[in-house]
Design a protein around this nucleic acid. Structure first.
Length: 577
DNA sequence: GCCGTTTTCGGCCCGACTGTTTTCAGTCG
């Protein structure tokens, strides 16, 4: 049997939910599958462990039935209801729902009436005019679906946070500068710092909504207006990203910001809690159900306070424990960009970097850092000119000269390559001469779980390996993570005092938020580095911090949130035990 | 299908916009 991890189980549950919806199942039945999928994806323990220990129902939203279904997937790759559904409906129908403008009802009609089972089929049916002729469809609907297919084909993939956030900030700044705007901020998944986003939400406060809507429709980056009403405009932009602009009255700002920041799961839970308190939460405020009186609306803090809660930082709003924590008043003090005192991962022209030691040091100074770990590739990674001992001696000599000049301290460091056996590039007497050693996997993407895991565990047993770099090796939108037993990896990291890295490079952000929470639960330390291959890329730290915050990371557990002497003392090699 | 400081049954968040309709269903967030 192939192995299933949490995201794989979540994907099957999501597909089941979509098929149930297309099949016309009870709304709350298919929603329960989506809800469970979301919870499984975010759950910090491995699904296999939970199944073995018969603790699947620990996951909120997973009851007896779903626990049995998940166990069945783990055992044989499917479950009874899923088999029945896929016998009735082709699973490819789920892809139709990915096309903007096509939901479950239209997908069902297209399948029943025209035999459409794929986006290709749909395109052909549109070309033959069959779609517009369907009852309840018409020309405009057909045209809308055709535009949706282009959007799906061209920009189907989610955008990286590093692409979306600057655009969101630009749009917000543009709208904020309008005379009729009181304030404007990015909301939605961008504000929550998600590693990838599907679209951009920008919220505007204004007493002149129509002026804001007009401005939104005519933003310089707009290529198509998808929809535009009195308070909401959706546009497609030159970057291919959809931007949704919502406008509210200034005194509704806090409620609207809370609402449009989401996540959907967080908001559903917030509204359930409100209901239990005799309150109703909408994007316009918190209202008493009995009198209709508005209790809060102008700030987010007021909205959460009306519900008896601290205000959860946006990055935590995934209904993954933050609501309980906010209610108990025990939200963590999350790490911020200002806490970062240095960058622990960068490359130079000595290997595959584009910038010199000097340029990297200058950038570190510009960012106000106390230190910068120079971590070029070690000997084993031949294809990028991994360093031999002579190269290292040369680099160390230059580092000594640069450090003598003052400014940020350059640390003599390395990114070791973990080989097929879990060994690294140099003998101990060389490893001992570095200030810091990162060790990373650069091969073995298709390896079985046991192989990749044992390589990492073996590397962490090396007393000179201080940090594991980009632990899962994923490249967002391009390469799946290496199949690893992350519970074992996190446990070994904690046991050996090896830090796990957040590689802040925008298409890595590895560890992920979910794995970070797993690491913290085991008591492992976190290290943050940009993996910059060009000095300007050291600005990527903010995306690493977003990911860290989503993983509930605090400055205390983060190596490079500590001053230099303390940071060094926390390294495995310097532990005195 | 899940869940319980009102409940083991009967609830389950709330609203905007569009298009095809003559009063509302579908989609989206």
């Amino acid at each position: 049997m192939p192995e299933y991890d949490n995201p794989a189980i979540a994907a099957i549950l999501d597909t089941t939910a979509d098929l149930l919806e297309i099949a016309g199942a009870d709304r709350f039945r298919f929603l329960s599958y989506h809800k469970a999928a979301h919870a499984v994806r975010a759950w910090p323990e491995d699904i296999n462990t939970l199944a073995t220990e018969e603790r699947l129902t620990d996951i909120p939203g997973v009851g007896k039935k779903l626990a049995a279904n998940i166990a069945s997937i783990l055992a044989r790759g499917s479950f009874a209801e899923f088999d029945e559904l896929t016998a009735e409906l082709p699973p490819t129908l789920v892809a139709l729902m990915q096309v903007p403008g096509v939901g479950p009802k239209k997908a069902r009609t297209l399948y029943d009436r025209l035999g459409v089972t794929s986006v290709d089929d749909l395109e052909a049916a549109l070309a033959e005019g069959k779609v517009a002729a369907l009852q309840g469809f018409g020309d405009r609907t057909a045209a809308n679906i055709a535009a949706g297919i282009i959007s799906y084909r061209t920009f189907g993939a989610r955008a990286l946070l590093a692409d979306a956030l600057p655009l969101a900030e630009k749009v917000a700044a543009y709208l904020r500068a309008l005379p009729s705007a009181v304030s404007a901020e990015p909301a939605g998944s961008v504000r929550r710092g998600k590693e990838t986003v599907g679209d951009i939400d920008v919220l505007v406060a204004s007493l002149d909504p129509s002026a804001i809507m007009e401005a939104a429709r005519t933003l310089p980056i707009v290529t198509r207006v998808i929809a535009s009403g009195e308070t909401k405009t959706s546009v497609e932009t030159t970057a291919g990203l959809q931007v949704d602009v919502r406008v509210v009255a200034p005194d509704e700002w806090g409620a609207a910001l809370q609402y449009f920041t989401g996540s959907a799961e967080h908001n559903v839970r917030v509204r359930e809690i409100a209901k239990g308190l005799g309150l109703k939460v909408t994007e316009y405020g918190v209202f008493r159900i009995d009198t209709g009186e508005r209790c809060a609306s102008d700030t987010e803090e007021a909205v959460y306070a009306a519900l008896g809660m601290q205000t959860p930082p946006p990055e935590l709003r995934e209904n993954a424990g933050e609501i309980e924590s906010a209610t108990a008043g025990t939200l963590p003090k999350l790490i911020t960009l200002a806490d970062i005192r240095g960058d622990l991962h960068c490359h130079t022209t000595a290997t595959d970097g584009k910038s010199t030691l000097e340029a990297n040091k200058a950038k570190a100074a510009e960012l106000g850092y106390e230190y910068l770990a120079i971590t070029d590739h070690a000997w084993g990674l031949r294809m990028v000119g991994g360093l031999d001992l002579d190269d290292l001696e040369r680099q160390w000599a230059r580092i000594d000269e640069l450090n003598a000049e003052g400014g940020p301290v350059l640390l003599k460091s390395i990114e070791l390559n973990i080989d097929e056996k879990g060994e690294v590039d140099y003998p101990d007497e060389v490893l001992a001469r570095f200030d810091i050693c990162i060790a990373s996997l650069h091969s073995g993407w298709g390896q079985p779980r046991e192989v990749g895991t044992s390589r990492l565990l073996r590397a962490m047993e090396n007393r000179f390996v201080d940090i594991i770099g980009h632990p899962t090796g994923r490249i967002l939108r391009r390469r799946e993570p290496i199949d690893l037993d992350m519970e074992a990896v996190c446990a070994k990291a904690a046991e050996t005092g090896t830090a796990l890295e957040i590689d802040a490079y925008p298409d890595r952000l590895d560890l992920s938020d979910v794995h970070l929470r797993m690491a913290l639960r085991h008591g492992a330390r976190i290290s943050m580095g940009c993996d910059a291959h060009e000095a300007s890329q050291m600005h990527f730290m903010r995306y690493g911090v977003s990911t860290a915050r989503r993983g509930w990371v605090t400055p205390e557990v983060t190596l490079n949130a500590h001053p230099l002497p303390e940071m060094l003392a926390l390294l495995k090699r310097n532990r005195t035990a």
